[in-house]
Design a protein around this nucleic acid. Structure first.
Length: 547
RNA sequence: GGUCCUAUCGUCUAGAGGCCCAGGACGUGGCCCUCUCAAGGCUAAAACCCGGGUUCGAAUCCCGGUAGGACCGCCA
């Protein structure tokens, strides 16, 4: 049953368990539950009071608002002492860092930075068969390129098996878990049969009451409570509740005694002191299981924030079909890390009408309150649009080292070229990516210009020959080869012949670049340098005479 | 099939019961500027999933549909 929770805005948080803060110390802050509930369609049960992440929601707050930040910053105040926010990114090393993972990492990072907390990197490599060294490196590279530096780690789950086993033993000893001797093949057969008959494919718990201990390999299963519900207040999605009866007794230790995901996550997040678990909303269904384990282990719950997924253009989960999904692929396409970060931040999060943010602004303004609950489509065109101002506003000195590898791919070694900065200056305003910039720069370095046939036919005509001769003479005579001086030479010729700039600029453009598209004619000539410009004009003049 | 999540222009979003016959941005069309191409400026087309309810008043709150997505492993 759904409630109009907005009307019940007299809701407060009370501490019900844990040691983090005395009850009754909740400040009133203006931006409270109204928005939280308004946009989130929070559901609440019929009962007036619900336990939520160790707090209770109840209808008694006199000020009529609820401290939203209390959930967001859960664990903040402890008798006046600030506890630091600790977030983590926990990828499994089975491939490269993709944009979805990068966004999850970014939001974790942003939240930690925003609250001067710690951001932790943890590699979830319990599946030895699928985890690879290359993947680990690829993820690290991607994070580093994006500037998502971590304060602790990387930690590897594969090195912490003892801790998981110890925790499992604790549950076993407490009677909160049990040994399951069912063979995997047997379970698989039962699952298929259940699916076939339309029954939920849930483990029937047949080993739960077992008192014998056969000399067979066994898995350890967690005892899920048969009744009741497990609910939590997600900072992004609102109140979420699951019936315990729908959950099965999940395996926490495999028969080879390696731990499983849902168990490791809890043990790690709890022992690493993670205060805010920020991850994709594909984990929502895992959350109640994890909460149950937290409780069984006697650990305090973190705050959960489930980010909506990133979809492809056809609104299905983003995958290679939709184009590049690897973060490093964007580096290779000539994007700047800031653009990707800016784009990813804006995909799901917003701050009024603002589109462009510096990293500092992002850190300053980020809040889960402004993260939308619905999934978003990855739009490469908008990312491209964002990259443009980044390149435009970057100093030539900063662009140069990034551009060199792209030029090198074309066989151009511009490292020692004194003209490089001037060349970049002419190009950067009109390049959306570094790759585009390197493409556009190619003509500057070419040994000989090859003319686009159509352009040559239209512009490199006999009529233009006298103008070229005048230009060659004028440019050759310049002692100072600057943009302004070049322009003076042009103007003199234009005035003497009563022509508009277009009449001269286009033929010259073809002569110098081979095509009809280039930076402004004066800046381009100046950047090219006298020697090369004059030589190309000579070549063009010779071509005109022939043809 | 079960569970959970979600729903405003093609896309990202603003929206906190009246400031909304819905604002911004990308993309698209037009015009201006102009030595080409971009950029820039102006401008146009373009959305509240449907049905009930609450209310003097609903994009907004409630209920029900519908649609999309995710998850249902001894994967993570």
């Amino acid at each position: 049953m759904r409630h109009n929770t907005r009307r019940h805005s007299d809701i407060r948080l009370q501490k019900t368990r844990g040691q983090r803060g005395p009850s009754g110390q909740i400040r009133h802050v203006r931006r409270g539950v109204r928005r939280f509930f308004a946009g989130r369609r929070i559901r609440r049960g019929d009962d007036k009071v619900k336990a939520v992440n160790g707090y209770r929601l109840s209808h008694s707050f006199p000020s009529g608002a609820w401290e939203r930040e209390m959930i967001t910053h859960h664990g903040f105040s402890q008798g006046g002492f600030a506890l630091t926010v600790r977030t983590r990114f926990a990828p499994s090393p089975t491939g490269y860092l993709h944009v979805g993972g990068a966004r999850t990492a970014l939001f974790n990072w942003l939240f930690a930075k925003r609250h001067k907390g710690k951001f932790i990197l943890r590699i979830e490599d319990t599946d030895a068969a699928r985890s690879t060294e290359e993947s680990i490196q690829a993820i690290l590279d991607g994070m580093e390129w994006l500037g998502l530096t971590w304060d602790e780690g990387p930690f590897f789950q594969s090195k912490m098996f003892d801790a998981y086993r110890a925790h499992a033993k604790k549950l076993l000893d407490a009677g909160l878990a049990y040994r399951c001797y069912c063979a995997p093949e047997e379970l698989e057969a039962r699952r298929e049969a259940a699916l076939k008959e339309g029954r939920p494919p849930k483990y029937d718990g047949r080993c739960r009451a077992r008192t014998d201990a056969p000399d067979k390999p066994y898995a350890v299963r967690f005892k899920t409570p048969g009744g009741g519900a497990t609910s939590f207040a997600d900072v992004i999605k609102g109140h979420i509740s699951f019936e315990n009866s729908a959950m099965e007794d999940l395996v926490i230790l495999r028969s080879d005694s390696t731990p499983t995901y849902n168990f490791c996550v809890v043990v790690d997040d709890a022992t690493m002191g993670i205060t805010h678990v920020v991850r994709g909303d594909d984990h929502i269904n895992n959350t109640p299981k994890q909460i149950l384990i937290y409780r069984a282990l006697g650990y305090e719950l973190p705050v959960f924030a489930h980010l909506p997924m990133i979809l492809g253009s056809d609104k299905t989960r983003l995958s290679k079909r939709h184009g590049a999904t690897s973060v490093m692929a964007y580096k290779e396409m000539g994007y700047l890390p800031h653009s990707l970060v800016n784009y990813l931040a804006r995909l799901g999060w917003s701050h009024g009408d603002q589109e462009i943010f510096s990293i500092e602004e992002l850190v300053e303004k980020f809040s889960f309150e402004n993260v939308g609950a619905s999934s978003g489509v990855f739009n490469p065109e908008k990312l491209l649009w964002l990259n443009h101002p980044d390149i435009k506003e970057m100093r030539e000195e900063a662009i140069a080292p990034l551009l060199l590898p792209f030029l090198k791919e074309k066989g151009i070694d511009a490292g020692g070229d004194a003209r490089l900065l001037a060349i970049i200056k002419t190009l950067k305003e009109r390049a959306k990516t570094l790759r585009e910039l390197s493409d556009a720069a190619e003509f500057y370095f070419a040994g000989k210009v090859s003319y686009d046939p159509k352009a040559a036919e239209k512009f490199l005509t006999k009529e233009a020959l006298p103008l070229f001769e005048g230009l060659i003479a004028g440019l050759s005579g310049l002692s100072e080869f600057t943009e302004a001086k070049v322009e003076e030479v042009f103007n003199a010729i234009l005035n003497a012949n009563g022509l508009k700039l277009g009449k001269l600029a286009q033929p010259v453009r073809v002569a110098l670049t081979g095509g009809t598209v280039s930076p402004g004619i004066f800046e381009m000539i100046a950047a090219m340098g006298k020697e090369r410009a004059v030589a190309r004009l000579h070549d063009a003049a010779a071509y005109m005479k022939k043809g």
